[in-house]
């Protein structure tokens, strides 16, 4: 028995629930064990606060306005890469999603195979693929688009499959009962039901890909990322501030847009 204290938790024993204590301490122990790996050093952290403020101060310089045309050009390239990669991935993911949905796949083996393929495709981060594709086809937006599209198929195919798996079965039976063929059932009974969630997913992925496309340039795979890193490395803060601002604006804009669209789809209101 524990000593009777005047404080207690709302459990039969008065002690905190085991699951909560166990998971909390597991996380704390893991953090304590890994602290040396991450080189956590609070002295250094707080010591550098001043530096960080000073650095932030340096960022606010008169922007280099002559850079603006190039910036716009690069931002446009970033957006174009995002759009292109997402569209390619969309075209590939639709059939793959059908094959990877338990209730739509022609055979369990196909299902397993496609599922595993998809999880392999999304396992490596976009930047790793970008590295690989850059060394395969050279610098430029092409390897960036390839890397983005490749990883996006991995995610989109999985999301699509999961959406298809939860569609209502009754309309499917209804259409099949009228003698519709294999593909017809999928096109006329499953896809219409899944469509709103598909749109939500595509918006979400577009958002994700835009963020990704802004940093692909880091490895020479096109977009604004290259200029971003260079201006940072060369201490061209007059450029950096413009680039950061542009990324912030574009990302926020798409973020709001996709929020709007998704809530409109969820609440079913159409303008």
């Amino acid at each position: 028995m524990t000593t009777v204290s005047i404080w207690r938790w709302p459990t039969p024993s008065g002690l905190p629930p085991l699951s909560a204590v166990a998971s909390l301490s597991a996380v704390l122990v893991a953090m304590w064990l890994t602290a040396p790996l991450v080189e956590v050093d609070f002295v250094r952290l707080f010591g550098s606060l001043g530096k960080m403020v000073a650095f932030a101060g340096q960022l606010f310089v008169e922007p280099e306005w002559e850079y603006l045309p190039q910036l716009l050009d690069k931002m446009l390239e970033t957006i174009e890469m995002t759009f292109l990669a997402t569209m390619i991935a969309l075209a590939v993911s639709l059939p793959l999603g059908l094959l990877a949905a338990r209730n739509a796949t022609p055979h369990v083996l196909v299902y397993r195979l496609v599922r595993d393929l998809l999880s392999l495709m999304r396992a490596l981060p976009d930047l790793v693929w970008a590295l690989v594709f850059v060394s395969a086809v050279g610098l430029g937006p092409l390897p960036g688009v390839m890397a983005l599209a490749f990883v996006t198929v991995g995610f989109m195919g999985k999301f699509f499959a999961e959406i298809i798996e939860v569609v209502d079965h009754k309309p499917v039976e209804g259409v099949a009962a009228h003698g519709a063929g294999w593909l017809q059932v999928r096109l006329f009974a499953m896809l219409p039901q899944a469509l709103p969630d598909f749109v939500g997913t595509v918006m979400y992925i577009l958002d994700h890909n835009l963020r990704m496309a802004t940093i692909l340039g880091l490895v020479g795979a096109g977009g604004i990322g290259y200029d971003l890193v260079m201006s940072m490395r060369l201490f061209q803060y007059d450029r950096l501030i413009l680039i950061a601002l542009a990324i912030y604006l574009v990302v926020t804009l798409l973020d709001r847009l996709s929020d709007r669209l998704r809530s409109r789809i969820i609440h079913g209101t159409r303008a």
């Binding site: 971003l228 950061a244 912030y248």
Partner: peptide
């Protein structure tokens, strides 16, 4: 704001 800043930046 936190979301809009790429983590690599």
């Amino acid at each position: 704001f936190m979301r809009a800043m790429p983590d690599l930046l």
